[in-house]
Design a binder for these strands. Sequence first.
DNA 1: ACGGGTCACTTGCATTACGCAATCTATTTT
DNA 2: AAAATAGATTGCGTAATGCAAGTGACCCGT
Lengths: 135, 135
Amino acid sequence: MALEIFGDRWSLLIVRDVMVRGYRTFQEFLQSGEGIASNVLAERLKRLRAAGILTAQRADGDGRKICYQLTQKGVDLAPAVLEIFLWSAKYEPTAAPPAVVERMAHNREQTLQEVRRRWAANDPTPVLPRFGAAR
Amino acid sequence: MALEIFGDRWSLLIVRDVMVRGYRTFQEFLQSGEGIASNVLAERLKRLRAAGILTAQRADGDGRKICYQLTQKGVDLAPAVLEIFLWSAKYEPTAAPPAVVERMAHNREQTLQEVRRRWAANDPTPVLPRFGAAR
DNA sequence: ACGGGTCACTTGCATTACGCAATCTATTTT
DNA sequence: AAAATAGATTGCGTAATGCAAGTGACCCGT
């Protein structure tokens, strides 16, 4: 059940960060406040690419940066990520404002549409603002 | 994002097994074909109970067996489990018949209702028959 | 009521994964 | 050219995992 890929503490978190927080680069993932180690991050990014969930390319304008993006397979995880987020919001203390959670819970399809739209448009604007999204 | 609880290879698999395959006992989990080790299984069951996702009680009729059940918090994971299952069915080889997957994808709410109904009625009949559910 | 089997774990131990800090190479900035 | 930055990689100690064997409680047929 996909747990060969997501059966660890970090993979889904990375997917979520690129999906709803608009993260693109190694540094952004590293400094996301979750505390992943750099070697583990490198290994997970490699694995997510191998699994066809992320793609990577050098950023134009800065040849050092590598720009990670979701594939179709990756963005198709949006419903799962959303449901996990909603469950977490219900049962765990979260920094996300209740109003935002409420809106996402009642407009799931609209929220997903928005995620897909931003993905298709390569729009890195966060779906969830900076308040810690889903801890 | 709940990954302190599910950030491992086995926890969600256990939840799925009790949720849709009707598993209740240690032996059933152990022999589910996934290959979890008994010490790890014991530890995960303990953790899921501590997290308030499972409860345990001795089976009436056999004082050796311990009957694990989902809590409300546990059954509320159904949407997330369903979405992960659908994603897996789409992108991984699965033993589940395409017709079944199709039906679940198009009748999500009905499928979830059925899971909740069986949970409320304490009905261990598998939602997914024996074909390997969601590998 | 005794012996064998079942059930839910535990224990011991080798292997693997992880967290952390330091280091490396390529590229960009000053 | 020198310093800084980005994306990793390496070394190492600790924690988690897999595997086989063992433990104690309980059931069942004789």
